[in-house]
Design a protein around this nucleic acid. Structure first.
Lengths: 192, 192, 192, 192
DNA sequence: TATGAATGAGCGTTCATTCAT
DNA sequence: AATGAATGAACGCTCATTCAT
């Protein structure tokens, strides 16, 4: 693996453990096994490293969402949404400190909002992907006309997002079974 | 108003605007119209100020939740939940940078988790309050037996929480009407 | 006891425990049971308090030295010097942190040197008093002509002073018996 | 000379001039001709710098004490002790503000006492070295049996130590001749 | 490209002193 | 005389970034 990736992985690990504010370049360099100077041979600055790491988050969820699109009309809706819900809860849980760190420096957020928009990035993309899938199902007649696909998506992913937040806040460590149970309860309530 | 409150209000304003990491004692003092030294006549340190402000968040929501408990059996459930949903979205939207700042310094979170638990504070309290209300309604026969009150609460508040996050992330400024519309869509989906 | 004395005693206790550098006005006030403001009703400033306390040190030794002067010609010289030596060791031991603190702020020392000289204060006074006594004994023929009274005084008190320093440095707590033994050894060596 | 040594020398100079309490990192950096930040590339903190400087004190005396050990049986005892006494007076005089600074922050002293003990450092080492030499002389029959070598060492070095203290306290600047005269008087009294 | 010593602006915090009550 | 909140200068220290090697 080249040094750039080594730095990125080290930075991700440190950022998740310490939060953005307490993540120092010295610590990243130590974790990556290189000098502080080397960081600047591969990234413009610390912010650049953070953004690089941030973009790599939620990949598991994003991959699951891509495959979701082709499942319209197959199996049951609930069964199709299961892996998505699980992936969302998992990725949200793992990335929460990093995702929230975006708000610890609002000027940085401001600086990159436009870029996010241009590249169509951001956490709302997941909700839109689920809504798109549900819309297809609705057109296939598998969801009642009066239901609002986007609303269902917001409820489902929103509950996962907040749950991930709260679990992180309380410092709980959820087992896979506990996570699966939460997802089940959400899905069962939305799709009785 | 005494200086302690003036400092707290100034700190809240600065924290919401700048995030915890970029909130300096110098800036708080400037906003409060006092010297930096005065901060330490009323608070132990910067962290103490932050925690003081943090505890004051979500008050609108909490108040609404208190009145909710006595509404079981009256009006329609959906109508009862409307102000709660609105308050949640509003408070979450206004407090998001501050709430997320908790994750920017994990050791601070660690340091105060026990205290939060002892005082039964934390964002999960809201979900429990809504669930308690729905449970009462269920016992009154106004909600079907097989529904899970906690799950409904998690879906409703979770969607508001994530929506608040996304709106903050994208830098959108939502009008009251837009907020109301979002709440309506969530409630209509959960209570068709 | 009036407040001025209460403050002085509190300051002495705090100064001996914490050293000048770590002695704060807040701590003195707390120990004296009054407000910080009150300190300034009785002393010009913190330095003034320190000097007041400093002047009160070595009182036991000074008293013993006064009585020493009238003992010339009586008993044995060694017996006469015993209480002086003991008092010196004791006072030096108890006051060492305070005495040394004089050097922690050389400009303060500079500022008050002239005053010390005018009032004929300072640690060298003790040596001179012992030398004066020994000179009387010499004139009474109880000490050989070729001996140097001042040198004997310097050896005797110097050894006590350094011993007090070292005991403080090492953090030892000497019993009265240990102190007496040290004094005996010094006197026995000087007056075989 | 590398920067670490430059900082150490600058710190020594500032510490001797100003005392520990009034020695600021800013001042050390200015004297060393580097930035304050650089101090922390070479030392853990200000205390670390102080301890580094402290350990370098009394080197002249220590060197003299080492050569003293091999002089037992040669020349006269008094002649052998002369350079030691001179070195002691000189080093004590030069280092007094620094040595006394140890007492200006008793918690620091507490923190490092164990370390001093482990490394067998401390001002009492000098006395022991002189006593060891005198003991050898005693075994060679050059000192009477009933004399106490440690007592003689304590008298000799103690008088130098206190003299150095008093000279510093009074702000006198002693010439080499004055110092030599003092040493002579002490030695002549102890070894008539 | 890799380094790591040097930087310097900026941080949170302390504390002797003042002064209105 | 007694207070204690307010002060503001000064402190030790951190850390992202630079640059000569």
């Amino acid at each position: 693996m080249d040094l750039k990736n080594k730095i990125a992985e080290a930075a991700e690990q440190v950022l998740l453990a310490n939060g953005l504010a307490k993540t120092t370049t010295k610590e990243i360099a130590r974790a990556a096994g290189c000098s502080e100077g080397s960081l600047y041979n591969h990234f413009k600055n610390k912010e650049d490293i953070f953004l690089h790491v941030l973009r790599g988050q939620l990949q598991n969820l994003m991959r699951t969402l891509t495959s979701l699109q082709s499942l319209a009309g197959k199996e049951t809706i609930r069964r199709n949404l299961e892996p998505v819900t699980r992936a969302a809860l998992e990725d949200f849980s793992n990335s929460m400190p990093l995702i929230c760190s975006v708000f610890s420096e609002p000027d940085m957020l401001l600086r990159h909002r436009e870029g996010f928009a241009l590249r169509n990035e951001g956490p709302h993309r997941a909700n839109e992907a689920v809504a798109a899938y549900l819309f297809k199902e609705q057109q296939l007649g598998r969801i009642r006309e009066e239901m609002d696909p986007k609303a269902i998506a917001d409820l489902l992913l929103g509950s996962c997002f907040q749950h991930a937040f709260q679990v992180n806040f309380l410092g709980k460590i959820e087992s896979n079974d506990e996570r699966a149970a939460f997802c089940d309860r959400m899905l069962s309530t939305l799709f009785p």
